[in-house]
Amino acid sequence: MATLSYVNVFARDVVALSGFYQKVFGFAEIEAIRSPIFRGLDTGKSCLGFNAPDAYELLGLADQAETRGIKFLLNIDVDSQADVDLRVPLALEAGATLIKAPYTTYYNWYQAVLLDPEGNVFRINFML
């Protein structure tokens, strides 16, 4: 079964913006996934992530970011690495555009980066 795991916001200052949401809503930081370009907050049912602009390049979105004004991305978790590989062609057949084919990230997730038919960024993820 697929589940929404994260909504990630691209932020100029990940520390300040994630701190804002911590202060206003009391969300706890997920310190185990902290990096110089990322902060994650546990919202109780899913997570809210904050990516520094460096993540555009990491995700293969550098060319898209300026022209499309990309400010967020949806993260859909699936049950296996094979499920990522299965769902990418399904997404393409349904009108998605592949930005980055399935790969293993430096933080040990297997994921693909795509645009939906309206140009919104989403990832299909499996945490290894």
Rank of each mutant, 00 (worst) to 15 (best):
25 F>V: 08
25 F>R: 08
26 G>I: 02
26 G>S: 07
26 G>T: 07
27 F>C: 06
27 F>W: 15
27 F>V: 02
27 F>Q: 06
28 A>F: 01
28 A>W: 00
29 E>V: 05
29 E>F: 03
31 E>T: 14
31 E>H: 10
31 E>G: 04
32 A>K: 14
32 A>S: 15
32 A>E: 15
32 A>W: 02
32 A>H: 10
33 I>F: 13
33 I>H: 09
34 R>A: 13
35 S>A: 15
36 P>F: 09
36 P>R: 11
36 P>D: 12
36 P>Y: 09
37 I>N: 11
37 I>L: 02
38 F>W: 14
38 F>T: 12
39 R>M: 03
39 R>S: 06
39 R>T: 09
39 R>I: 08
40 G>R: 07
40 G>H: 03
40 G>N: 10
40 G>A: 15
41 L>D: 07
41 L>N: 09
41 L>Y: 10
41 L>K: 10
41 L>G: 08
41 L>H: 11
42 D>I: 00
42 D>M: 01
42 D>F: 01
42 D>L: 02
42 D>V: 02
42 D>E: 10
43 T>C: 14
43 T>E: 02
43 T>S: 11
43 T>N: 06
44 G>D: 06
44 G>A: 01
45 K>E: 14
45 K>N: 14
46 S>M: 11
46 S>Q: 11
46 S>R: 00
47 C>G: 07
47 C>F: 07
48 L>M: 14
48 L>D: 10
48 L>N: 08
48 L>I: 09
48 L>H: 04
49 G>R: 08
50 F>S: 05
50 F>M: 04
50 F>P: 03
50 F>W: 03
50 F>V: 05
51 N>G: 00
51 N>Y: 15
51 N>V: 03
52 A>D: 15
52 A>F: 07
52 A>C: 06
54 D>T: 05
54 D>L: 03
55 A>S: 12
57 E>L: 09
57 E>V: 11
57 E>N: 08
57 E>F: 05
57 E>G: 02
58 L>F: 11
58 L>Q: 13
58 L>A: 13
58 L>T: 14
58 L>P: 01
59 L>F: 13
59 L>W: 10
59 L>N: 13
59 L>E: 12
59 L>P: 00
59 L>H: 10
61 L>A: 03
61 L>Q: 05
61 L>K: 04
61 L>V: 03
61 L>G: 04
62 A>N: 06
63 D>C: 02
63 D>K: 12
63 D>G: 12
63 D>W: 00
64 Q>H: 12
65 A>F: 06
65 A>W: 09
65 A>M: 08
66 E>Y: 00
66 E>V: 08
66 E>A: 14
67 T>S: 13
68 R>S: 02
68 R>E: 00
69 G>W: 10
69 G>E: 04
69 G>M: 05
70 I>N: 04
70 I>Y: 07
71 K>H: 11
71 K>G: 10
71 K>V: 12
73 L>P: 00
73 L>V: 01
